[in-house]
């Protein structure tokens, strides 16, 4: 199927041959793509243009720059939402590939560009689509960018919260910690004790933002499986994915054990009960 056939709102004018090898802007000094990279780039380009969100998010551009005006990333990186939209709208496979190596990760997803855009584009959204593609295709650059997220991804996939207070360590996120304001001498505060001193029962844990019930985390994982998130993650990091499956298997066992343990008590409380299919 020709890539051109996927282009929304546009009459196919290129021949299939041209479409398969769209004119790429080869910048001076840029390493040419290997044959494999080029194949991936073209596959990604095709999927990008065929994504249902593309037509909805990329409408057109007057190049007014109001998106970049409020963009936090534009102040610190070689990045602008205006450029990203232009790449999304008129770029070819190679240009898209280039933008997906680094630029897409500069975006802060603050949505200021969307709120400002007088054409009604969803720029933050189209950047998310590019990011999803880079994850699904396991791009090397994406692996590098996301390497520091193993811990928070594990938390997120298994209990559905992003951070935990035990990530605050003397050598890591020290400045997030309690008593940081008072200086280093106070840093001996025991995190377990400080969590106990929070007057909310489910927050008195250090391993997750709050205690998430086992049933809830099993349901969450079910969502990830059914919605294809697990397959997506496998493309990025197969080892992590296997580990997550193991963790969930343990939680499932824990759930079964608890069910046996509590059976009579609950039957007394609520009468006969059905099976949880999670």
């Amino acid at each position: 199927m020709s890539v051109v056939a996927h282009l929304p709102h546009r009459t196919p004018t290129l021949t299939d041959t041209e479409a398969a090898h769209p004119p790429a802007l080869e910048l001076t000094g840029r390493r040419p793509l290997t044959a494999e990279e080029r194949r991936t780039a073209e596959t990604i380009f095709g999927e990008f243009r065929a994504d249902g969100r593309y037509r909805e998010y990329v409408l057109g551009c007057l190049n007014c720059g109001e998106c970049t005006t409020g963009c936090p990333a534009a102040r610190f990186y070689d990045f602008s939402p205006r450029e990203m939209l232009q790449i999304a709208a008129v770029g070819d496979a190679t240009t898209l590939w280039d933008a997906m190596q680094e630029k897409i990760w500069a975006c802060c997803q603050c949505y200021t560009c969307n709120m400002r855009c007088r054409f009604g584009n969803d720029i933050a959204g189209i950047i998310s689509v590019m990011r999803e593609l880079s994850v699904r295709h396991g791009l090397e650059s994406t692996r590098r960018v996301l390497a520091p997220f193993n811990r928070s991804l594990t938390l997120l996939m298994t209990v559905g919260t992003q951070v935990a207070s035990d990530m605050i360590q003397p050598d890591f996120f020290r400045d997030w910690g309690p008593f940081a304001a008072a200086g280093e001498k106070s840093w001996d505060a025991d995190p377990h004790l400080l969590r106990q001193a929070i007057p909310i029962d489910v927050l008195q844990t250090t391993t997750s933002s709050w205690e998430v019930s086992v049933q809830t985390s099993l349901e969450l994982f079910r969502i990830y499986e059914e919605a294809g998130v697990l397959d997506m993650l496998r493309g990025l990091d197969p080892d992590l994915t296997e580990m997550l499956i193991d963790i969930i298997e343990e939680r499932r066992e824990e759930f079964e054990e608890a069910r046996t343990r509590y059976h009579s008590q609950l039957a007394a409380m609520h009468g006969p009960v059905a099976t949880f299919s999670g």
Binding site: N63, C64, G65, E66, C67, T68, T69, G70, C71, A74, R75, S80, R82, E83, R116
Partner: peptide, 27 residues
């Protein structure tokens, strides 16, 4: 390039126009 927002600067003495110069490609 357009001004995307106008706020007050210099303690309200002047206006601050934040925009993008789209030829120079910078805020």
């Amino acid at each position: 390039g357009r001004i995307g927002q106008i706020t007050q600067a210099e303690g309200g003495k002047r206006l601050l126009a934040t925009g993008e110069d789209t030829i120079l490609s910078r805020p």
